[in-house]
């Protein structure tokens, strides 16, 4: 184990920290290889907790934390994990990190932790985390794994927040951020003229349609992602 770490350091000196390849790890998941719209990972939480921006931001931050921790730890341990039991080892690492997040949320933002209910626990089985551990961290050095984790968590986070912004804006006419509380965006005058909040946007099915439309826009722009029927 010590030897591989030494090799890591030597290699890093010959390769700049943010070489072209490493930059790609960071930027690819934002668009071309987005975990939600292209790799189809981590959909469950993306849909369920996007009623309010605030919840989405907290969720995205939790996933960033778990993802970076998980990717780094698994990448450091990749040479000592026996192949047959790797899923269980990964699950235990992720579960430990999620317990940490859950306890922190319960201690500092209890209301949001209640609103997220089971979905904090479900970060454990969020496919995006397991997917990246399996596909990347198990076969790569810690530094690229770290970048991959940040890239994918950011790609996941921005879709999550985008969906939440659309749903909250049209659903409740407001915008909520952690620490700021609810900020009403649609002016009172609109309501006086007969504007109504679309309560449908708050219902679960509209999250699916919103993500569907995001995928539509993305693929219309980026035609190499278009699938066969």
């Amino acid at each position: 184990m010590a030897e591989t770490v030494d090799q890591d350091i030597e290699k890093k000196e010959s390769e700049p920290l943010l070489s072209k390849k490493n930059r790609k790890l960071l930027t690819d998941p934002l668009d071309d290889d987005n975990p939600i719209t292209v790799q189809v990972l981590g959909i469950c939480s993306a849909l369920a907790i996007t009623v309010q921006v605030q919840q989405a931001v907290i969720m995205a931050l939790s996933v960033v934390f778990v993802m970076i921790g998980g990717n780094l730890l698994v990448s450091l341990m990749r040479n000592v994990i026996p192949n047959r039991i790797r899923i269980i080892v990964q699950l235990v690492i992720v579960a430990a990190l999620v317990i940490l997040v859950d306890q922190i949320l319960k201690a500092f933002v209890y209301d949001i932790s209640k609103a997220l209910s089971v979905f904090v626990g479900l970060i454990i089985s969020n496919c995006i985390i397991m997917g990246r551990l399996e596909a990347f961290a198990l076969g790569n050095k810690p530094w690229p794994s770290f970048l991959d984790a940040i890239g994918n968590a950011a790609g996941y986070g921005w879709i999550l927040i985008a969906v939440a912004v659309v749903r909250e804006l049209f659903g409740s006419g407001s915008f909520s951020l952690p620490g700021l509380g609810q900020v009403t965006l649609i002016p009172e005058a609109f309501y006086n003229f007969g504007y109504m909040n679309n309560n449908m946007m708050i219902l679960p099915p509209m999250a699916l349609v919103t993500v569907g439309v995001i995928i539509w826009i993305q693929r219309a722009r980026n035609t190499k992602l278009v699938e066969e029927n």
Binding site: V40, P205, M206, V209, V213, R219, T223
Partner: peptide, 16 residues
């Protein structure tokens, strides 16, 4: 529509 094929349309159908 081409950009909606596969994943996109599946999402929208699931929503419906």
């Amino acid at each position: 529509p081409a950009p909606l094929r596969g994943l996109g349309i599946t999402f929208i159908i699931t929503g419906l």
